[in-house]
Design a protein around this nucleic acid. Sequence first.
DNA 1: TTAACGATGTAATGTTGTAACGTGCATCGA
DNA 2: TCGATGCACGTTACAACATTACATCGTTAA
Lengths: 165, 165
Amino acid sequence: MIDPPHASAYIGIMAAHHHHEHAGASLAQAAEAALVEAGEQWTDMRSDIFAVLATFEKPASAYDIADLVSQRRGKRVAPNSVYRILDLFVTTNLARRVESANAYIANSHPGCLHDCIFLICDSCGTATHIDDDALTMSVRAAAEHAGFAQVRPVIEVRGKCADCD
Amino acid sequence: MIDPPHASAYIGIMAAHHHHEHAGASLAQAAEAALVEAGEQWTDMRSDIFAVLATFEKPASAYDIADLVSQRRGKRVAPNSVYRILDLFVTTNLARRVESANAYIANSHPGCLHDCIFLICDSCGTATHIDDDALTMSVRAAAEHAGFAQVRPVIEVRGKCADCD
DNA sequence: TTAACGATGTAATGTTGTAACGTGCATCGA
DNA sequence: TCGATGCACGTTACAACATTACATCGTTAA
């Protein structure tokens, strides 16, 4: 399950398996499939919220999303409703919460379970993500070694992205 | 400064160098020394806020701290003031912000610079920390390889601690 | 038909974080 | 001694993020 240890950090990136990096309609379809797979309903509201979330390339706050979904529907959607659905998305792995930004981002490969590493630019706010299973597994291992169970790693890196540097 | 990389994740814990894990008065002294060293003043307010922060073993919110400092001084201390000083503490490495808890925790070895890994129990809220330079350096390396600069890793693990499990 | 359930709406409130500006005090050179 | 400067801290207001409690509505199962 866990790759053998390796000397250098980033050699492991994307090495483990191939991802479908969905976008646009394909992503929405994949999200729908994943949600249904999880025994949940793919409602209009959920579809709209996912669609809006997926248009962002920066982590989006629940209030950002509420505003845009309100526009799209021509009717006010309360933050409350958005939070409910974002929570659902997070638990079903359709979206991730970016803790250091109090915001959310769509998972570009739903259905595929990873701990991922987010890089968030302090200047422009854009977030990219890295999958490095070897690294995240090491973090998990360290936590478990310290007696933790049901471990959920939060690995984010703040800094300046290549464009803003 | 940095140890050579080593193979397994958690073997590195605390291996790199010896820490003085301060507590109580010793910790306050160390904090004072570090702050002065950074060219900042060690005022009564800062002393009180640090003292209160250090009594917590769970990450403390700025508002928690404001309440307790208010009691201790017999006079209302506004959250605003607390934030200012907490920010100072974070930039001078006397305290850390726990992003996934919107809260702060005293650094038990101020003056000693690390990226640290926090383990936060979802049940009891207590936080422990791990220093694993090999692991954090791997995260840094991964981010830098992706073009990021001025990197500041945020590595936290949510889960159940050994006591609550 | 009606009871139960899940999804969403509504309103209120709680928590966390920042901005803008004012006051008091110590220091320092004229 | 006097004013200028800089820093710490106070005060107020507000912005941003999040939750709670309860109501409504449509679908499904008894």
